[in-house]
Write a protein that binds this DNA or RNA. Structure first.
Lengths: 255, 255
DNA sequence: ATCTAATGATTGTCGGACAATCCGACGCAA
DNA sequence: TTGCGTCGGATTGTCCGACAATCATTAGAT
């Protein structure tokens, strides 16, 4: 790496398909093209850019993959608003490929959940609290069905996040959510009274929201997640093992 | 949404290029293909999948865009380990397109930084502390140069994150980092003694790490970020305005 | 053994082609 | 008038074949 006095900047030949993608992307990011706006047909783009259709197509695929452009019913192109799931899925995959451990996941989830619950305590409206209570009621009715409970648990926490009213935090959490929630079912099964403890924790969290009691909220968040951890270990899994695709299979479906 | 008794599952014709991408992706995610492994040449894939090269290429572009496959020096294909930056960039873009406000960004950064610093207090080794001190020394030397200070500030916080030793949290933070750090320069300029306050905060944070004093660490993290906020407002920006590309221009370069 | 030049393989791009599908207009029947 | 089937044009998904530029590799020169 001897980079002392460089006269010329590195030359990086950019393939045409990349330039096509970049050009369209720039229009979108600068706001000259807004979500919903139609992009031309392939033929039009061919004319505008002066490249072959194959090239245009390769370029478009990139943006399409990123969700920056969509194809509506008739496969015509329009600017899209990339929604989180799409991105999150990929981040989640990256975590798996990097062989992140369950311990890291658990720790991070703990930290992020605590942050979330504080926002929620500050901002939860009555609507939110009612939604949460409805969720709890539903959970109680299906207590025997671990899968159903797990699903409702996910919903509970999603509502909580939305209550916090901070999309940056929400997005930051999503990858870890995608990894931890799918294991909930496994964890509930691991502990006999798992579902009950979960419902109890949810109830106490809602109570904390009502009273706007941060300490209480933090306490029960911790307990709730400690339960997860205990269940996880009791299910015979090792906390320091990398998150594996076998456990996560269902989390990986895009769309 | 009347989805009561549906007899037929939705039909979704999957284009060939998509299937190509999916097939390769599956091999990677299940671990049958590991990072670094070569994928065949385009010609080989054409033979294996029995589709045209154009189709193969469109499929490959998708994976390439996601970082799941790379092209090395000679543009030959191999399995890649998607690194965060790539993904982060896209998440960051999504936040901008969703018109997230600086307030949300600031709040989330506060929460995430507090989480980070707690991990760091628990786990910072001497190496880390020395690296941080070196960084501070360097910062002091360039105090006049706001841009240089901003860059070193970013580095400081990255070291801090790594010290926490939790990649999930690290990844969770990255999008907000990409948005907030580029504004640091602007913020430093906004306050006359901005650089000094920044250095002071960094010093106190390191001191807190040495003493493994969480409260102190949290306190100075809060101060540090409150400074950011003050500077931001003093620079004449509105906290409730959406994060815009003009302010963020430099943050958006991929690679 | 090391460097150089020729050879072959591979990618990026191009042009053209065709079937399947979608959209819209048209005409016909109720 | 309203609803329905049909037709033509437009557009996409896929295929074929081709060629220049570039990289890898091998053979040849020093």
């Amino acid at each position: 790496m001897s980079e002392s006095a460089e006269k010329f900047s590195r030359i990086t030949p950019t393939p045409a398909y990349q330039m096509v993608a970049d050009a369209i992307e720039r229009e979108i990011l600068t706001g000259r093209l807004r979500p919903g706006d139609p992009i031309g047909t392939e033929a039009e783009l061919v004319k505008q850019f002066g490249v072959n259709r194959s090239t245009v197509r390769e370029g478009i695929r990139l943006l399409e993959h990123g969700g920056l452009v969509q194809r509506d019913s008739s496969r015509r192109l329009s600017v899209g608003l990339p929604h989180y799931n799409r991105l999150t899925t990929r981040v989640t995959r990256a975590l798996i490929l990097h062989e992140v451990t369950f311990r890291e996941l658990w720790e991070a989830t703990m930290a992020l959940s605590l942050a979330t619950i504080e926002f929620a305590v500050d901002r939860a409206t009555l609507d939110v609290i009612e939604a949460l209570e409805a969720n709890i009621a539903a959970t109680e009715e299906v207590q025997e069905d671990a899968a159903a409970v797990a699903e409702l648990d996910t919903e509970f926490h999603i509502i909580l996040e939305k209550a916090g009213n901070n999309r940056v935090l929400e997005l930051a959490r999503e990858p870890s959510n995608m990894l931890i929630y799918p294991t909930t079912e496994l964890v509930i099964r691991g502990v006999p009274e798992g579902a009950q403890r979960l419902v109890k924790a949810h109830k106490m969290l809602v109570e904390a929201l009502r009273q706007r009691d941060k300490e209480m909220a933090r306490l029960w968040t911790r307990r709730h997640l400690n339960d997860w951890r205990k269940g996880f270990e009791r299910a015979g899994k090792e906390l320091d093992q990398p998150i594996d695709l076998v456990t996560m299979r269902h989390a990986m479906r895009e769309r």
